[in-house]
């Protein structure tokens, strides 16, 4: 199968973020970057599908400045066959602008399957995958936790709150993957060496109009200190009262 996987470069989410001086983005100094976790599942899914089903091609695509080549090469070192960077000065805040650029690249690619992570772990919009599907006029299954493919059709499971849904659709299709899919493999040292020789094509991103911009970014307020309402069984009525009237969780 010919599979495209769209990946995003994101900062390490365990960082203690600072807001940049402009007030609309995070301070990038000292940040470490990696492929978004869910995108790692997507790359792994593509590699395993092609390993299982015989000869195929796995193409990884990322939109952004030249630094995204690092994540593209990581995917190549995991085993993807080639990479495409859709070059842009920055990643737009408007998912539709990104989706248009991806759709322009994917349209003529002849892909059987286009994979995304469920959402980018930094911006968490979960919009680019479905929007790209819409622009391409393809069926789209989001946040799938299993994916089986046979005879040009796919069956996927989606884990919902308290329920499981199984969906079926024809290929080509767009699928965004959730936890439950195989975790990304460690890039082997041989894979890292081999990745240097694999093609990485750079093209200008055909971004659409950007109609959403970030107005303000701020850190969540510091959590207020806890309060001790009393000790022993005698404190229970007061605790229950506060949970009811103040915290409103009862």
């Amino acid at each position: 199968m010919k599979i495209a996987v769209c990946i995003k470069r994101v900062p390490d989410m365990e960082t203690r973020f600072k807001i940049a001086a402009n007030g609309t983005s995070v301070d990038e100094s000292g940040l470490k970057y990696d492929m978004s976790d869910f995108d790692g599942y997507a790359v792994e899914t593509a590699l395993q599908l092609n390993e299982k089903q015989g000869p195929g091609e796995t193409v990884v695509i990322s939109l952004g400045p030249d630094v995204v080549q690092e994540q593209l090469r990581k995917a190549l070192s995991m085993g993807a066959d080639r990479a495409v960077q859709l070059k842009a000065d920055r990643v737009p805040a408007d998912g539709l602008a990104i989706a248009r650029a991806l759709a322009a690249e994917l349209k003529e690619g002849g892909y059987d399957l286009i994979l995304f992570g469920r959402q980018a772990v930094d911006s968490a919009n979960a919009t680019v995958g479905p929007m790209t599907a819409e622009l391409l006029g393809l069926p789209c299954a989001t946040a799938v936790s299993t994916l089986d493919i046979a005879n040009g059709r796919a069956t996927a499971r989606r884990d919902l709150e308290g329920a499981t849904e199984v969906v079926e659709f024809a290929l080509p299709a767009v699928v965004s993957v959730d936890e439950g899919m195989p975790r990304a493999r460690y890039p082997s040292l041989k894979g890292i060496m081999a990745a240097k020789k694999k093609p990485l094509e750079v093209k200008p991103a055909q971004l659409g109009d950007e109609r959403i911009s970030i107005e303000k970014m701020e850190l969540p307020p510091e959590r207020a200190a806890g309060r001790i309402v009393g000790e022993g069984p005698g404190a229970v009525p007061e605790l229950v009262r506060l949970l009811h009237t103040e915290a409103k969780v009862l």
């Binding site: 890039p187 082997s188 040292l189 240097k196």
Partner: peptide, 23 residues
């Protein structure tokens, strides 16, 4: 923390090797 910016003296491939083994 890379206090002395020693990473700037490493190639991308060297950093990738380190990242994989580190993980």
């Amino acid at each position: 923390q890379d206090f002395f910016d020693i990473d700037s003296a490493l190639s991308e491939e060297e950093r990738a090797v380190r990242a994989s083994v580190r993980q």
